[in-house]
Amino acid sequence: MSFAPQNAYGRVALIVLAVVAAAVWFLPAYYTGLLTLIGIYSLVTIGLNLFMGYAGQVSLGQAAFVGIGAYTSAVLAVYLHVTPWLGAAGGAAVAALVAYVLSFVALRLRENLLALATLALGIVINVVFNEWEFIGGSSGFKDIPGFKLGAFTFDPRAYAILSWALVAVGIWFAGNLVRSSFGRTLIAISAGELGAQALGVDAEKLKRQTFVLSAVYAGIAGAVYASYQSYIDPSSFGFLLSVNFVLMSVIGGLRSLWGAVIGAAIVVALGQILQAVVPVVLPSARGDFQQFFLGAVLIAILILLPRGLAGRVSEGGRA
């Protein structure tokens, strides 16, 4: 039997993109904004799913790569007048470079230590954002130029479409990847690393390439975020955001690419709902409490649906 890999991800993603592109003309601005945010987070989470769900690793520092993408693009645009289109490529490149260098330390480590190493990366990068006056220090970076297409400067609708176009490309690419021999080898190392190594699989190199790819996804997302918000500061890319990416990834189902999108949508939606509900129910509660409740609701989801909402990991158990 000959098997030609077909990628349904790309086709479905085009339909989703078309729906978004139509919806933004009807949706109130508030929802268009949420849609943009979900698109940006989805992009990060699709990349993270390759590293966590398929390669079986952990990263608690993904927000740092988003931040690197955002700051790189912002610096290029503000200081060197580089268009955000190129800035996004630059952001992806710098995020990839940092991931590449870090991987030589981190990927030697087993899961728990890898989680700690990526966590430390996130913290260190955030300290750099805070202390480096050239990029605004703790007060952040203002007046970041927007994306342009000819004479047209992107408005919120255009950002929603842009972010979902990137989701479409990102999920198409990842979809091709997971169905290829590359993706199968990722699954092989996550299931039995030593067994794959005994066949000649350089597990560390494979994880490195995947980690760098996940940083590329995050870097591009960060660049779009920076131009969309036109303002960034270190707190936008803190530890809690990294945790939220892991939550999005796990809630949607680690070994599922659409799960990443579903996870991002749920975490963003829950955040909004809690922001509206918590002050009414608990008037004395402050911002931290929302994160607390978000965590609690998400833990409940995880207990009820351990494989995630779109979990496609095979149900078959060992005989």
Partner: peptide
């Protein structure tokens, strides 16, 4: 035995063949 759970039998063999395709080392 070390199994690659998440893959089919054919895919497990194909993983080995992919390494072979690139001179015995992947990726």
């Amino acid at each position: 035995p070390v199994m690659f759970w998440g893959l089919t039998v054919r895919e497990s063999i194909a993983v080995a063949l992919a390494a072979r395709e690139f001179g015995g080392s992947y990726p």
